[in-house]
Amino acid sequence: MKIKKFILQRFERWLSQRIPAQKHHTLTSKNIFILPTRFGFTYLLFVLLLFLLGTNYQNNLIILFSFVLASFFITVMLHSFFNFSKISIHSESLVTGYCDKNINIPFYITAHKEHFYIQLDFNDQQCNSLLKVTPATLLQVNNGNNTVNLSIQAPKRGKYLLGRLTVKSEYSFGLFKSWSKLDFEHMLIVYPSQRVLNAIDSYLCSTNDETHLSGVSQSNQLGIDEFSELKNFVRGESLARTAWKQLAKGQGHYTKHYQSQQGEPVWLTFDGLPNNQLEIKLQYLSYLVTTLSLTNQEFGLLLKLHGKKTIKIPPSSGLEHKANCLHALATY
């Protein structure tokens, strides 16, 4: 076992030198491995058997037949290799998603000719024994740009390193397996799954004061939309929001924009959530963060628990903020 581990480590090290981490990989002879499959070896054995048969019967045709099959083996090797090479794969390293949901990792594949039967998979045992990866088989990669999603399910929230992506193909006859292990430095951040809270408003708290955070409802502040600004009319916007006064005055076509007015930003905390388990609380928060972001509300996140580091994210809104908050929830 020690030797095996040692060899694996050496291989890992060698691999990281050979195929360093990148966002963009192109399959070339430098990073493609090609070896006969088990079927390939059996095939060779059969060819040898045929050669023996031909020799023993002094039958030139059977010998020729075995030679044709043997040469075919070599031709297929070349064919497999060229089917596999010159594919460019691009993927962003950060992948996020919710727990127990399919998380799609997009791969952008660029090809200059048609390729067949390419399989993508994460099967690095060390990194992701917990993850449930659905390998994707591309029956055909078209000339041009292709997108393929690899879906992953994670049973627990947290941060995962996906390890190397295995790209492989047994095209064209299953005799050879060409494969490559590409490192995109994929990092998977799994947010807690969303647990639905029915009356959202009652769990929002707007006090900045950390000392008396309570479940006091601030609902009177919510849902009241106030006019904020006029913007140029963009095709597709509802005519109901057209600023008719301005249009009638001939000042141009504008639309009115509203924003929910919040006296003080909302703070999301553990307190007042209906369950005592940390995981479930995190799931509620995950739901809250997602829902509030949908309506573009401002909120802050305060995670505080005995024996754990306190995380405080000041109130804000927008996608980046949402990602930050969920990230915090995932890694708490």
Binding site: L64, F67, V68, L69, A70, S71, F72, I74, T75
Partner: peptide, 9 residues
């Protein structure tokens, strides 16, 4: 593919 193999064969 077979025609290629025939050359070598």
């Amino acid at each position: 593919l077979l025609l290629q193999s025939v050359i070598l064969a």
